[in-house]
């Protein structure tokens, strides 16, 4: 469905954030993108949805193809119309607008008649925000804001939903509820999800396939089950020793703690 080939992204013509990254997202199910801070995960999502230029970023090289369309030359609103919705990191709601107005903005490209119907679908998916539809969205709790952010993206009627750290700063129970809702969408509506997540356990449990990014490069990929058994993933992302038991960092020499995937 989505293919990224040898993508290179540069900020300010100087800083290379993504280098030679390639990945494929198949139709249906969830694909996870893991990696430490600054690995280039968010940049990759921004490159796909075409919003690098407000931050002086640009695509130097490589291809992004979505169902045969080349996305690298399209404007952000054209990419949304193709069926890709991006929930940005940190929710980024329109805080001066009410919950319902936020959702209506998401329905900007939809037909007028569809907006009311989709609003009801979103409220059915996240009943918590229905009671708060007239509240200024900036006053909601983190979890509720994330629900509005996902709902707002779903209003564009996407086939590919890109979630950037949906569990960031949210109570674990809330995060589970949000994941459950997204998984239900994948199963029932055939939605495809590209997930960026720091919480590797949560992401690997939910996803079918995963990529690990480090320093802008894809260093590891495979099915989520394979990655969960991978020794390095266990040690560096799940906090488990090779044998599956917890390991104290005191026993590791400090220069060995940080692992480089590629030399």
């Amino acid at each position: 469905m989505l293919e990224v080939e040898n993508l290179q992204v540069v900020y300010n013509n100087a800083i290379e954030a993504v280098r030679n990254a390639s990945l494929t997202v198949g139709v249906g199910g969830m694909t996870a993108l893991l990696g430490a801070n600054g690995a280039g995960k968010t940049t990759l999502l921004k490159a796909i949805s075409g919003v690098l230029y407000p931050e002086d970023g640009s695509i130097r090289d490589g291809l992004i193809k979505f169902e045969g369309h080349d996305l690298t030359s399209l404007a952000p609103d054209e990419i949304v119309r193709l069926g890709i919705a991006h929930v940005p990191e940190g929710r980024r709601l329109f805080i001066e607008l009410t919950v319902e107005e936020n959702l209506v903005v998401g329905g900007h490209i939809a037909e007028r008649a569809d907006v009311a119907r989709r609003l009801e679908e979103i409220y059915a998916l996240f009943p918590r925000i229905k009671d708060k539809r007239a509240v200024l969205s900036g006053y909601l709790s983190g979890g509720e804001q994330q629900m509005v952010a996902i709902g707002r993206a779903l209003m564009t009627n996407p086939r590919l939903l890109m979630l950037d750290e949906p569990s960031l700063g949210i109570a674990p129970l809330m995060a589970q509820a949000i994941y459950a809702a997204v998984e239900r969408l994948c199963r029932d509506n055939g939605l495809t999800v590209l997930l960026v997540e720091q919480n590797a356990q949560l992401a690997l449990d939910a996803s079918r396939q995963a990529y690990v990014l480090e320093n802008g490069r894809v260093v590891l990929d495979g099915t989520s089950d394979e990655l969960k058994r991978n020794e390095d993933v266990c040690e560096f992302y799940l906090g488990l020793g090779a044998k599956g038991d917890r390991r104290s960092m005191r026993e590791v020499k400090h220069y060995k703690r940080r692992k480089r995937w590629l030399s």
Binding site: S49, G50, V51, P54, A75, P76, D77, V80, R81, A85, H86, P88, R92, F94, I95, E96, L97, E101, N102, V104, V105, G106, H108, I109, R152, A153, M155, T156
Partner: peptide, 19 residues
Amino acid sequence: IAMRAAANDETVALLMGID
């Protein structure tokens, strides 16, 4: 509403398909 949204957060307005 789209105008208010764009004034509030331009980048996210782009992500919502607003020109």
